[in-house]
Design a protein around this nucleic acid. Sequence first.
DNA 1: AATAATTTTTAGATTAATCTAAAAATATAT
DNA 2: ATATATTTTTAGATTAATCTAAAAATTATT
Lengths: 220, 220
Amino acid sequence: MKLSTAEENYLKAIFKISEKAKKSASTNAIAKQLSTSAASVTDMLKRLAEKELINYEKYKGVTLKVAGIKQATQLIRKHRLWEVFLVKKLRFSWDQVHEIAEQLEHIESEELIMRLDAFLDYPKFDPHGDPIPNADGKFTIRSQTPLSDMHKGQEGMLVGVKDHTTEFLKYLNSLNVKLGTMITVIDSVPYDGSMSVNLDNKNVIMITATVAQNLLIRKV
Amino acid sequence: MKLSTAEENYLKAIFKISEKAKKSASTNAIAKQLSTSAASVTDMLKRLAEKELINYEKYKGVTLKVAGIKQATQLIRKHRLWEVFLVKKLRFSWDQVHEIAEQLEHIESEELIMRLDAFLDYPKFDPHGDPIPNADGKFTIRSQTPLSDMHKGQEGMLVGVKDHTTEFLKYLNSLNVKLGTMITVIDSVPYDGSMSVNLDNKNVIMITATVAQNLLIRKV
DNA sequence: AATAATTTTTAGATTAATCTAAAAATATAT
DNA sequence: ATATATTTTTAGATTAATCTAAAAATTATT
Ligand SMILES: [Mn+2]
Ligand SMILES: [Mn+2]
Ligand SMILES: [Mn+2]
Ligand SMILES: [Mn+2]
């Protein structure tokens, strides 16, 4: 089924909300995610329900039907593959690619994505450490912990970030923190959750609890 | 100025028609080019005139203003760069890329095109031999003759095609005719304009006048 | 120059996607 | 359990882009 860009974006939003909350997505949550009005969301939900992509009952939230999940997953696959292309091939920085990928993900061509995937050597993760679903929609899973949950002395590698905003990523750039950086917890302050951590066994820096919550570590 | 996909496509259509006919584009010609109704064209022309992109007077044709030429040229640049990417990097065949490039050309990011251009090593021509305007909108010009205008004994290299349809390009594939192929006119039949030509000093084939008109040769 | 043919424009509808404001339903707090 | 607050839906408009059918303007033909 051929969907409009707007329809695709709604499905992706519902997918992301359900994934995070592990329950049905509310009208307001979708509106917030897409920076649109609740009224617009209701309109669109009717249309998506009509097309059998979501389960929708007035005043209850929505969940994706199988067809909807498939569409959302493919869209995420396309988004993340394009992000890899932009970073690996065009040498964009990880804080510059999201906007462009938001556009590229809507290009319609199965063949294009197959070839792009091959060209990039079938990457499993995008530049932010998010898993790229394969052509069948399967995500690679990986054990990871927010740095904020780690204790003094524990060590691991940065494998992902939760916050994808340009501001956060640029801040990490300024700290010289990137995917692959080895992080060891030197100390953590119970009072405010801030931490001092060692980077690649070189320098020690201080970070706030908020930052620590947004750094995903694979422990060694 | 940020334009919609539809607006961009109209500007490109007007550019192509004016380029070929070397005069103003008529409502009907634009409608035909875009497979839409004349009424829709009139609607859009009013909008584009309002935005100072075209010169439009009722019942006269339209011409592009400077801003319109700039937009159309940039769009063509993007289209052709993406076609190069698809063929050179993703290994698509030249008959498969136009549709996808029609979508990709509307992705909005100056930075993306700059980087894509560099990644592709600043190509001057696309996979169909069409010139790629540079960032300033300048086209490389090249002397070329339709094969149909050449005479017995003349020789040259295939540098472009006039017809960009999948059917024509696939037919050329089947003849093993591609950009770079050396073509020598063995004989031409005045009666119907058909020709027998030698390819790369190997085999001789027969082609019709129509085919010969669509092959652009740089004579040696 | 009058008539016919063609082209172009206008008029009026339609569809997707959006909005604001008001009404209705649901959830929360007293 | 009633009142209040929040969420969600409906009602009614708007805008871009399209369409068909009819009217108007232009061009071609007798
Ligand atoms: Mn992204
Ligand atoms: Mn990402
Ligand atoms: Mn093309
Ligand atoms: Mn081309």
